[in-house]
Design a protein around this nucleic acid. Structure first.
Length: 515
RNA sequence: GCGGUGGUAACUCAGUUGGUAGAGUGUCAGCCUUCCAAGCUGAAUGUCGCGAGUUCGAAUCUCGUCCGCCGCUCCA
């Protein structure tokens, strides 16, 4: 059922010009998609709503648009060069894939557990007089286990540091590590997956190697001081950015949910150290409120992170119930002063803020909100795509496919339809209405087929309003305006149409839910 | 990368034991004096993923190859 819905979303996207597979005439490119005419409108509206929710609604948030290319040292400082590599190994018998370093680490944990067990046994034997420190330092078996754990640790760290995948493989063999479920020791070679794409630019770095940014956040951090000085912002303040990011996922899956090239909407909020948890909670709530303004509350939930990233001291996801389950839409992280401090150390530039209230310098702490634009797009469509039964002209049941997109996000706001196309006066009038309305919002003019069919066509792309020009229009300048979800029609004067549609489809109708 | 599965029109799919392709929807042109798809008439669209082989003949059989989907791993 849910799987069916997902398939329908994918084919609907293709059929109506929301999303096409990339490079389709060359058989496609795995995990890459193009946005079509309807898709780009919806996506732009989503971005615009986010931007206004951040920059327009908060006096202390400003936007930037930093370059995708950045100095390679930025990714050194951010930790991505070191932490964004995954050594992978496959078990030939079980066909399962593992992270080679995790296998070794698990083995190290076992060694430590063995040592602890010896200590426990001894503690029971000696009772109160037991000196654990002394025992750990002298007992040969404990020493052996501890030493082995340490050696392995060192060798693992070294192999990872020097990218010595052969030694990592050797380590796994020497430790006799078996696949947990099957016990098989039939491993492939260890292969390194770097999740950052690289390219090159002459005159930069060692051999000009550059990375395509895996997150937009770093462009904000390295501009922290520029923005603060040029906008005269005081802590707390935020910087927002929308832009493409690139991650060489091992496998990109689930349509546009996980793509190798994707768009992030990030806001980094700089706060006084010690206040970060308050701000973290504030942004958690604000971001959830934003999502709820366009998505039913029951499809959204918070999910705390079990494992924190190297830079975070608190992290939560806002998840959405996709057809394939609850999945991350947005991440909210308390990033501490990790990034600014790290850039400060590596660049030698002081990335500080002088706080006039405290009369002291400090490196600000950062609370990050980071939402996947493409995921949001998919969530909107997942909610919106509905097949429902409605009465047809004879009052019989008929099905219609309708995208119940929030009107302010809909690609096309209004369709203008002459009731009949073979009546010149209706067509002319409709054209003049269209020309008037297109000054205000995106409209479509359609005269082909029966008007009922045209309504259904507009339903399929989520157009909230259809204006129909009939013979009465020629007499009194009124038109019928038909609402997408209720399919109800009201007759209004032509002069009122722009106002009615604007009021319902303007982003301000969403923004006012946030304040 | 490994395993499973699939690739036929814009979409969903059929195609029987091999005889050079069909349906529905959609699209386009036209008809219809009146508001919610499935009225009427007509039309266009496919190197049946690609290549090789077997055969008189391949969408169909064989091999290879490319690509998609699902799972394993990853999602900072």
């Amino acid at each position: 059922m849910q799987e069916e819905l997902f398939k329908k979303i994918v084919s609907h996207c293709k059929e109506y010009g929301f999303i096409y597979p990339s490079s389709e005439v060359y058989d496609g490119l795995n995990g890459v998609y193009d946005y079509g005419p309807m898709g780009v409108e919806l996506k732009n509206n989503i971005k615009e709503y986010w931007w206004q929710g951040m920059v327009q609604l908060h006096e202390n948030i400003t936007g930037i648009d930093s370059a995708i290319f950045m100095h390679p040292l930025i990714w050194k400082a951010s930790g991505h060069v070191d932490a964004f590599n995954d050594p992978l190994i496959d078990n030939k018998d079980s066909k399962k894939r593992f992270r080679a370093d995790v296998l070794v680490e698990t083995e190290i944990d076992k060694m430590i557990a063995k040592a602890d067990k010896e200590v426990d046994k001894a503690a029971k034997r000696f009772g109160e007089s037991f000196d654990e420190k002394m025992f750990r330092e002298t007992n040969p078996r404990v020493l052996e286990y501890t030493q082995k754990a340490q050696d392995t640790e060192t060798r693992l760290a070294n192999a990872l540091k020097t990218n010595d995948m052969a030694d990592l493989k050797a380590l796994i063999e020497e430790l006799n590590i078996a696949e947990p479920d099957t016990g098989s020791r039939n491993w492939t070679e260890v292969r390194q997956f770097n999740l950052m794409f690289s390219t090159q630019m002459s005159n930069t770095g060692d051999d000009g190697k550059l990375y395509l940014r895996p997150e937009t956040a770093q462009g904000i951090f390295v501009n922290f001081q520029n923005v603060q000085k040029t906008t005269r912002q005081k802590i707390p303040f935020g910087i927002a950015q929308i832009g493409k990011a690139f991650r060489n996922e091992i496998v990109a899956r689930q349509f546009i949910f996980r793509m190798r090239e994707f768009e992030q909407m990030e806001m980094q909020f700089f706060v006084r150290p010690g206040t970060e948890m308050d701000w973290y909670n504030t942004w958690k709530e604000r971001r959830m409120a934003w999502h709820r303004s366009i998505t039913p509350a029951e499809k959204l939930r918070f999910k705390d992170h079990d494992n924190l990233a190297h830079y975070a001291n608190a992290a939560v996801d806002i998840q959405f119930e996709f057809p394939f389950g609850f999945k991350e839409l947005e991440g909210i992280h308390s990033r501490t002063d990790f990034d600014l401090k790290s850039h400060s150390e590596l660049s030698g530039k002081k990335l500080q803020f002088f706080d006039p209230e405290l009369n002291e310098h400090y490196i600000p702490y950062v609370v990050e909100t980071s939402v996947g634009c493409d995921r949001l797009f998919l969530s909107v469509l997942s909610n919106a795509l509905i097949e429902e039964s409605v009465p047809d002209a004879q009052g019989e049941d008929s099905s219609r496919t309708v995208l119940k997109i929030p009107p302010a996000l809909a690609p096309v706001k209004c369709a203008v339809l002459p009731l009949l196309k073979n009546k010149e006066e209706l067509v002319d009038k409709a054209r003049s209405v269209f020309d008037k309305l297109k000054l205000h919002f995106l409209c479509q003019y359609d005269e082909k087929d029966a008007v009922g069919r045209r309504y259904r066509r507009q339903d399929a792309i989520g157009t909230p309003y259809c204006v129909t020009i009939d013979f009465q229009t020629l007499e009194d300048n009124t038109v019928t305006i038909r609402e997408r979800d209720s399919m109800e029609q009201t007759r209004v004067s032509i002069d009122e149409v722009a106002g009615i549609v604007s009021e319902k489809t303007d982003l301000s109708s969403l923004l006012e839910k946030l304040v």
